[in-house]
Nucleic acid binder design. Structure first.
Length: 934
RNA sequence: GCCGAAGUGGCGGAACUGGCAGACGCGCACGACUCAAACUCGUGUGAGCUUAGCUCGUGUGGGUUCGAUUCCCACCUUCGGCACCA
């Protein structure tokens, strides 16, 4: 008996050795092709989780495989070290965020080393290090110079009890309550910094240069939204506030009869008339709480309130009421719309519900005019004359229903006015819009072409129905007539009507002509919108990179000169939950001098979104803390150009799907902006992307401390060794799908590695019998397993690669007595070690050394299979009768179709199932099967 | 509501381009070793039946095909994304 497999001893020893030898140091090598393999960096939360192992160790295996394939592989690691939990720890436990973060990093580095991954630790980058965030700030200044950074007022979630702004993930539940105290969260407007990511929206929708999963492409496409072309038009309130709206239908501007602002629109406060404030505030509160989440039905009932002021429609001077309603989203367009109920479905529903006037301004191509003549409203003879004039109608219970061409409608009006009895009216809708009223003094024709005319019409109608009508608008009245409904509303393009000078403009020119017209008058201009909005990067927090901006009373907003970077985070701050960045109360930080005029000035006290740090970390790894200790200018580059030129872009990125729409869009934006800065000459940061799934708890639920189903990698490493944990994580599920943990299941990989150990080291008493046939079988299996594992690694199918190696282990076990020590045997075990090395690096290194092979196995070339050796000599032909398997034939590979068919038809089992019938057809699939059809 | 992914033994999961369903592993059963247990080794393991064999079986129902887990249509369930986009 020789010594048993002892992972604890082996793993520690080799990890030390590799580190001493710099085995995984990735340096520029012009001879070998480079391969930048990147896996998402962790947040230093304190403990390495099994999820980190699940993300990192298969990536490591693939990176190791690429290295054995001859690539110069860079596989770096770092920490995304700014962020909220550090600050919470400071508030709750009084630990400084820096101290908390750095001690977590220290611990996680140790834990990560136990994975035996090929990280090049000399390229580690930690985003909260001033040598790192100096460059994050540098990027901010660059984007500012390019006009891609700007400031505007925007809403944040705010907890009135904790008196603090909240990040999105701190707002819980459908009722939007604070994570810490449960108080209902409100929105608060603050002036904040944004990046113009929407300038790149069109380009971000182009995925032609990257091989990313369809799922991610779909999610990003969804997130960015389609291109909406239209115009920004400026309205003014009666008090003179400019209110900008975005519309895709500027040609319907003359039909705008009201205006709607998003409840959280910054102007709502000022525009609300005093007597409407209580209603406004109540509505705002309700809207703030339900926004975004659970807006279940798209066609749910419209809600909204009038806020007591009016705006002027710039094209026709009409005074239109201003409402707030939650169907207008602050996050799209300008957060305000013009309500054109005649040609927008939502506006139509809203106007109908709240009794707002609806004025048609676009004709629908080919739509008829309709009219209903009520029984008893006209003198006798109308029907006869209509008939004579060739105007079709249907009579139902004495009423006439007419569906006419526009020309017929014009004649109809002419005729009908003669027959209309005093005290009655007739309306014409669709291709024509008018009301004919008759009283003792005569007949009046009122076209429905403005809100003023609409008022006249509805008051006439009220008068004629005795004032008892509760219909508030003409359209409400018309909507009651089933016969009219299909012509009352439409959203098609068509000839403009009731639109002043632009009336008569045909549908195909309406939009562009209107935009030109608006532009000439300075009322509006062409604009494009996406669902994607500009990236808000301000955080009212301490633990982030300070935004390098200074506010001077004399010079305004002044960027910190590049030479003065970094703007350091002061260490001595109070972590009181005040609602604003603690930096605001740090006098030493806050007060500074203006770089331009030297006068007194204050610093921006917000810090940057941590997604900024992670948008360029893959470049930071190439030359961590570049130019540390040296002053920098705007001409400098944040990365060593030589390293950047050699390694970038990332060839393979791996990480969780949860970053599909945030990080992975931001980092694409960053790279495109860097390209426009002249820093890189490519468009996309990561050529290939692969998303791994998630390890669930044994109860099939997401792991969480509260559920008590968390699996600790440290405990597993102690019990089984890192190699076993690695192999199990790659074996138990498809990597892209993930699955539930199985504490029994890990025994399989554990036994597998035990077996590999003893297969190779336990001598077999028998001398190699070395029969030629068995050696050939083993060689065939050896080359087959090389092929299988290679193909599986190419496609990230770690689970089936390991299954293939286990199967190979089973063959080795069977063949050991016959072949131990023979050349075929030695080839087999050496191959097995090489194939297994990326998965279980320690045990393979150890066994490789014990076999007397040259150090290190991880520097060896990946084995190649010989297709001739891998080819089977025999084939198994499946014999079916009517598609059902009835027999199997073991035949030499070179058996001809005729021979195979005749052998099949002679088979006893086949004959029995044929039951004497003659085969009608014999299907032959070479090398696979014969199907006899009767 | 729209878009996307997935449904296979007791469990995790295999199955190339339409060709032996259940590889590999866990678990379980029986046997060997052991005073015993664990470990280890061997054998078996989709279900049913009238068990040399036959029938059924990949969410459900249809279709195409000599042949369907795989392709097509409809539906059910689960998960993910988006959801009044002016």
């Amino acid at each position: 008996m020789i010594d048993r497999y002892n992972p604890a001893e082996i793993e520690a020893r080799w990890q030390r050795q590799w580190e001493e030898d710099g085995l995984y140091r990735a340096l520029i090598d012009p001879v070998r092709p480079k391969f930048y393999f990147l896996t998402m960096l962790p947040y230093p939360s304190g403990e390495l989780h099994i999820g980190h192992w699940y993300a990192m160790t298969p990536s490591d295996a693939k990176a190791r495989y690429m290295r054995m394939r001859g690539y110069n592989v860079l596989f770096p690691m770092g920490f995304d070290a700014f962020g909220l939990p550090a600050e919470n720890a400071a508030i709750q436990r009084g630990v400084h965020p820096h101290e908390w973060t750095m001690s977590n990093i220290e611990k996680m580095r140790r834990q990560m080393r136990s994975m035996g991954a090929m990280f090049d630790w000399e390229r580690e980058a930690v985003s909260c290090d001033p040598r790192y965030y100096r460059w994050t700030q540098w990027f901010f200044l660059k984007l500012y110079e390019m006009g891609l950074a700007y400031r505007k007022e925007s809403a944040v979630d705010f907890c009135p009890r904790c008196n603090t702004t909240l990040a999105r993930e701190q707002v819980w539940g459908e009722d939007h309550h604070c994570e810490r105290c449960g108080t209902l969260v409100i929105k608060k407007n603050l002036t904040q910094w944004f990046f113009r990511i929407t300038d790149y929206a069109e380009e971000l929708l182009d995925f032609s240069q990257i091989e990313w999963p369809d799922r991610v492409v779909a999610m990003q496409t969804n997130w960015i939204g389609h291109r909406s072309e239209g115009a920004d038009v400026t309205f003014h309130s009666d008090q003179g506030h400019p209110i900008e709206v975005f519309t895709t239908r500027p040609d319907t501007l003359w039909g705008a009869t009201f205006m709607v602002l998003a409840p959280e629109h910054p102007l709502v406060e000022e525009l609300s008339a005093p007597e409407y404030r209580p209603v406004m505030e109540a509505y705002r509160l309700q809207a703030a709480r339900q926004s975004e989440i659970d807006r279940t039905a798209a066609d749910r009932e419209k809600t909204g309130v009038f806020i007591g002021s009016y705006a002027v429609n710039p094209v026709n001077g009409e005074h239109i009421p201003i409402w707030i309603a939650d169907y207008v989203l602050m996050t799209y367009g300008s957060g305000a719309i013009m309500g054109v109920p005649s040609h927008d479905e939502r506006d139509f529903a809203f106007a109908l519900k709240f009794g707002l006037p609806i004025i048609p301004v676009i004709l629908r191509d080919g739509a008829p005019a309709k009219s209903r003549v009520m029984a008893g409203s006209t003198d006798d003879g109308l029907a006869v004359e209509l008939h004579g004039a060739g105007i079709p109608f249907q009579a139902v219970d004495g009423a006439l229903y007419l569906t006419m061409t526009p020309v017929q409608a014009d004649s109809f009006v002419h005729i009908a006015r003669k027959y209309l009895r005093p005290g009655h009216w007739i309306e014409v809708v669709g291709a024509r819009w008018l009301f004919i009223f008759a009283d003792e003094d005569g007949v009046e024709i009122v076209p429905l072409d403005s809100t003023a005319a609409e008022k006249v019409i509805i008051s006439h109608c009220h008068a004629l129905t005795g004032g008892a009508s509760d219909r508030r608008t003409a359209m409400e009245l018309l909507w009651e007539v089933e016969f009219y409904r299909d012509v009352l509303y439409h959203s098609d393009y068509g000839e403009m009507i009731h639109s002043g000078l632009l009336s008569g403009t045909p549908g195909d020119r309406a939009k562009s002509d209107t935009i030109t017209w608006l532009d000439e008058r300075g009322i509006g201009k062409a604009a494009v919108n996406y669902r994607l909005h500009d990236w808000l990067i301000s955080r009212q927090r301490y633990w982030g990179a300070p935004i390098p901006m200074i506010y001077c009373d004399r010079c305004g907003t002044v960027p910190v000169p590049h030479e003065e970077l970094p703007v350091l985070l002061p260490e001595d701050v109070e972590f009181m939950p005040t609602g604003e960045s603690p930096l605001k109360f740090h006098q030493g930080f806050l007060h500074t001098t203006c770089p331009r005029c030297g006068g007194p000035a204050t610093r921006e006290t917000d810090t940057m979104d941590t997604f900024m740090c992670s948008s360029w970390y893959h470049y930071a790894y190439l030359s961590p803390y570049w130019k540390a200790g040296q002053p920098i200018t705007s001409q400098d580059t944040p990365v060593d150009p030589t390293e950047l030129d050699y390694w970038a872009p990332v060839d393979q990125y791996t990480g969780g799907i949860e970053h599909a729409t945030m990080h992975l869009i931001y980092t694409r934006f960053f790279t495109k902006a860097m390209r426009d800065m002249g820093l890189v000459d490519f468009d996309e940061p990561m050529t290939r992307l692969y998303n791994q799934g998630m390890v669930l708890g044994e109860d099939h639920e997401k792991m969480s401390k509260s559920r008590g189903n968390v699996i600790s990698p440290d405990v597993l490493v102690k019990a089984f060794g890192a190699d076993t944990v690695r192999v199990f994580l790659m074996f138990f599920a498809r990597w892209d799908q993930g699955g539930p943990w199985d504490s029994q299941g890990i025994k399989g990989p554990s036994r597998f590695l035990d077996d590999v150990w003893s297969l190779i080291l336990d001598p077999h008493s028998q001398s190699p019998a070395g029969k030629g046939g068995e050696a050939a079988v083993l060689r065939r299996k050896t080359h087959q397993v090389i092929r299988k594992v290679t193909e599986d690694l190419e496609s990230f199918s770690f689970n089936t690669a390991i299954a293939a190696m286990m199967e190979f282990r089973n063959s080795l076990r069977d063949l050991k007595p016959a072949l131990f020590g023979s050349p075929a045997w030695n080839e087999a075990v050496e191959t097995l070690l090489l194939l297994l090395a990326p998965f279980a690096p320690h045990i393979c290194e150890e066994l490789w050394a014990r076999l007397g092979k040259p150090y290190s196995i991880h520097r060896q070339s990946w084995p190649m299979w010989d297709p001739q050796l891998a080819a089977e000599e025999m084939m198994t032909l499946i014999v079916q009768v009517n598609g059902k398997v009835r027999d199997r034939l073991e035949l030499p590979r070179d058996t001809s179709e005729e021979q195979a068919k005749s052998l099949a038809l002679q088979s006893e089992r086949v004959l029995r199932h044929l039951g004497g019938k003659e085969p009608q057809q014999v299907v032959y699939v070479p090398g696979r099967l014969i199907n006899v059809v009767v």
